[in-house]
Nucleic acid binder design. Structure first.
Length: 611
RNA sequence: CGGAGAGUAGCGCAGCCUGGUCAGCGCGCAUGGUUCGGGACCAUGAGGUCGGCGGUUCGAAUCCGCCCUCUCCGACCA
């Protein structure tokens, strides 16, 4: 039972009903109603900190969130948020709500369970693949767990938006989503069940979407800045439906789940999936006649290049995929790799899969010695990377086991259905903007904004009457932020080897009051006065009144990373002073043990914190 | 889905090769006492179907088979 020297925690005055005045069955329950409390007592809170590092957490945010008692795993990529994490998450959500409301967002809440039929209409029941969790309800209806909400929100818009006078409109929600990721990793960085702020805007014209999109872009920067993060906006893959733009906000981080390309001079940054690099031409080299050469046991580019003594960039590589029911035959310079995202866009399909040897043989090509020269034309689409037209006198397969061709040139020796950039940008490549050096980096994708266009409104028949009275499909944008991932990213960015260092804006509490001798009534009484006065000053306070040694409390204070530590102990109290310590830099100061001085001292440290 | 690793008390781990005093250690937890400003100390104690199922054996945490789960790397990621 709680000791009697502590008064019950009082309710906040600003609540219209004083909940502690209700006849509660047991006094201790009132202390657990966190939201109504003026301050929180650690002894009556769920704060399961660990002294030792967990065995299977490798990245800092994951390790620290487990150690600080913020999250606990339930299954792979599925976590419970404990009180500390939930408080921080609510701070993040509050910032997001303010910024979304500021650009005209209307918060709604959509269902998590959707009829599969809706997803069938947009084709994504198939496109989404096994990440989309499906099940049947008791009546046998096919349902899915929502991995995102374009379908549902567009269905809503179809029903509710009839006129251009209702536009533009921006709807958003903060909601749980489920994607059965093939691989969750890194704690909250990449999970299967996650909370996401997803927003959708509706416009009468592309011009209006183009006007609105930069506002969202700016709102996103505001959100991340207020959370203490400065992500790099990068150009993202605009996807099959075109649209005129998409950006991701990437926090550079070695543990990131995503890969991006950035120019050292800083004028170009793109997701690796869409990154473009300059491809050099073989300037001034004359085309030489085709020549057949024996190349026994040379099934790879490496083998051919070393056998013939030519650099890999003087070879042409054949790569095969299946897509849209036909074979996709990609010809690319031997030193480059195929970027499947770019390829899918070039071909105009969403489903590309590596081809089997039988697929390859069916069009007359020989695996290992495949060549675009002399293959059968029907049922095969030849995609030539734009590195090939710029190159001269390449070594390519001869479609005959053990033989290659020298001096292959495009378009002299073979033709293409499509010539496009389908190559993966590499570290060290040259920037398409300035010719500078490109670097491949890891990052955490904090947010993604996207000009959707009419993909969903057309598929679902969401039309409105324009100013001339003609029905037209709604023009849409969509904008997402993974809130749990953002929380993890804040910790990735703000920690040291001793624990988390919260930015004050998202800290679960502002002040950590360590009561070194909670069993001494005078100390306990004083701690309550301190907590109450800090509360009245508008600060959120966690009072560590647990029966622990001083050392443990100091270590936990570091681990939890609450911005300001107030130490209530005999040494300071004897002098009528309390010690304050700032988490970020360890700066300490003593202030008189009376309310105003204390609150001012804490605010001073917090102010310097945020500057 | 490929590659690698791991499941033994709440957490971190040893034991496994070589089957039989191997159900153990540290932390944590409970009780009592001493401490009390930077992860204290003493004493006592609770807590485990050794991931599951099957097999080998007189006997299995230990050997064999199948399965499950988790972590990391890769593939994948509107």
């Amino acid at each position: 039972m709680a000791d009697t020297s502590w008064p019950r925690s009082p309710s906040r005055r600003r609540w219209s009903m004083d909940r502690t005045s209700w006849p509660l069955p047991c006094g201790t329950f009132s202390a657990n109603l966190g939201a109504t409390m003026a301050y929180v007592r650690a002894s009556q809170y769920l704060l399961p900190t660990w002294k030792e590092d967990p065995a299977d957490a490798d990245i800092p945010s994951h390790r620290l969130m487990l150690r600080a008692g913020m999250i606990r795993p339930l299954a792979a990529g599925i976590y419970t948020y404990l009180p500390l994490a939930w408080r921080a998450l609510r701070k993040i959500e509050a910032i997001i709500r303010e910024e979304m409301d500021a650009i005209g967002g209307c918060e709604i809440h959509m269902p998590m369970v959707h009829p599969a039929e809706l997803w069938a209409k947009t084709g994504r029941l198939l496109d989404f693949g096994p990440q989309l969790v499906r099940f049947r309800d008791r009546a046998g209806r096919d349902m899915v767990l929502g991995p995102t909400h374009e379908e549902v929100v567009t269905d809503l818009a179809r029903r509710e938006i009839q006129s251009w006078r209702q536009l533009p409109l921006m709807l958003y929600q903060i909601q749980t989503k489920f994607r059965d990721e093939p691989r969750s990793r890194g704690g909250l960085v990449r999970v299967r069940e996650f909370t996401m702020k997803d927003a959708y805007s509706f416009h009468e014209s592309f011009e209006d979407l183009d006007r609105y999109y930069p506002q969202v872009y700016q709102a996103y920067l505001n959100i991340f800045r207020r959370c203490g993060l400065a992500p790099l906006p990068v150009e993202a893959d605009p996807g099959l439906m075109g649209g005129s733009g998409s950006h991701e906000f990437m926090l550079l981080n070695e543990h990131g789940e995503d890969t991006l390309v950035q120019c050292e001079r800083g004028d170009y940054a793109a997701n690796r999936e869409g990154a473009v690099a300059v491809k050099d031409a073989d300037e001034g080299e004359r085309e030489r006649p085709l020549e057949k050469v024996a190349t026994p046991n040379c099934y790879t580019i490496d083998a051919v290049a070393s056998f013939l003594g030519v650099p890999k960039r003087k070879t042409a590589k054949a790569v095969f995929y299946r897509g849209k029911g036909e074979l996709v035959f990609v010809v690319i310079r031997g030193d480059l790799e195929v970027n499947e995202t770019k390829l899918a866009r070039a071909v105009g399909t969403t489903d590309l899969a590596p081809a089997t040897e039988a697929d390859i043989a069916a069009v007359g090509a020989v695996p290992g010695y495949a060549s675009p020269i002399g293959i059968r034309g029907d049922g095969v689409k030849v995609v030539v990377d734009d590195s090939i037209p710029k190159a001269r006198n390449l070594v390519a397969g001869a479609n005959r086991e053990g033989w290659h061709l020298r001096n292959v040139n495009f378009p002299r020796d073979f033709s293409a259905d499509i010539v496009a950039d389908v190559a993966m940008a590499r570290d060290g490549d040259r920037c398409p903007r300035c010719g500078g050096t490109l670097r491949v980096k890891r990052g955490i994708e904090l947010g993604h904004i996207f000009k959707l266009g009419t993909k969903y409104s057309e598929a679902l028949g969401a039309t409105f009457l324009d100013r001339e009275g003609r029905p037209r499909p709604l023009i849409m944008g969509c904008y997402g932020i993974g809130t749990g991932r953002l929380l993890a990213a804040v910790i990735e960015r703000h920690h040291d080897d001793q624990g988390i260092i919260w930015p004050a804006s998202v800290a679960p509490f502002h002040v950590f009051v360590a009561v070194l001798n909670p069993d001494r009534p005078d100390h306990a009484t004083f701690a309550v006065r301190v907590a109450e006065c800090l509360d009245r000053a508008g600060l959120e306070v966690l009072v560590d009144d647990r029966e622990r040694t001083a050392g443990e409390k100091f270590h936990d204070a570091k681990l939890l990373g609450i911005p300001v530590l107030v130490v209530i102990g005999p040494r300071a109290l004897a002098q009528g002073e309390v010690d304050l310590e700032r988490r970020r830099d360890g700066a300490r100061r003593k202030v008189p043990a009376e309310p105003d001085a204390l609150a001012h001292g804490v605010y001073d440290l917090l102010r310097a914190e945020s500057s």
